[in-house]
Design a binder for these strands. Structure first.
Length: 192
DNA sequence: GTGCCGATGATCT
DNA sequence: GATCATCGGCACG
């Protein structure tokens, strides 16, 4: 297995559901003020932009907040959720096609002491990066990374080909307002 | 283990 | 002024 940074071209293909599944098992790193932390991605959700009522870019809605979604695939889309949590997405597809993958959970890989300090709460290691708000907080992700490519010295992803990954597909979380689109099985969870 | 509920603030109407 | 891609604490039992 070759441990290499995944290129931005990985995110610039058309099928956001496929990209969301292929991200499972990969290792995402952040370097925040010299503190290096990383995690294996274990849960993602696909948001298919204009055609997806659950997406912030439904109907090509374009605002200051959603602007990063329209950039070329491979950059971060981050926003404040419920006034408290930063949620971390990766933009996919080509320029002006606002597809995104929400990273919902991870498994701590390196820098656990920094993650514990950022979380500021004593829980078992397996739960440190569980849930999208916790994932971003634990890895030190905030609005500073909005629009930044995921192959910089601040944030990057390492390839980690799984042998036989078992992927559980379910409905996405917290999007009841999306009507029929809330039923789509676009949430992907790595088993174990 | 499950279920309810308040916190909290940017964004959009 | 309402909405919201959430979380942790508390009440169960």
């Amino acid at each position: 297995m070759i441990l290499s940074k995944i290129p931005l071209s990985f995110f610039q293909t058309k099928n956001v559901q496929e990209i969301a599944q292929n991200l499972l098992g990969k290792i995402i790193y952040t370097n925040i003020n010299g503190q290096i932390t990383s995690a294996m991605i274990t849960e993602t959700e696909a948001y298919q932009g204009p055609e997806d009522r659950a997406s912030h870019a439904y109907n090509n809605k374009r605002t200051v907040r959603t602007e990063a979604m329209y950039k070329l695939g491979g950059c971060c889309y981050i926003y404040l959720c419920y006034g408290i949590h930063y949620l971390f997405n990766i933009v996919t597809n080509v320029h002006n096609i606002p597809h995104t993958v929400l990273i919902r959970s991870g498994k701590i890989h390196t820098g656990i002491e920094h993650v514990q300090e950022r979380r500021g709460i004593h829980i078992q290691a397996s739960k440190l990066l569980q849930g999208p708000g916790n994932f971003a907080k634990g890895l030190g992700i905030n609005m500073n990374l909005n629009g930044v490519d995921v192959n910089t010295n601040h944030i990057w992803i390492i390839n980690n080909e799984m042998q036989n990954p078992t992927i559980i597909k379910t409905q996405r979380v917290g999007i009841d307002y999306a009507g029929e689109d809330a039923l789509l099985p676009w949430r992907y969870i790595l088993k174990d």
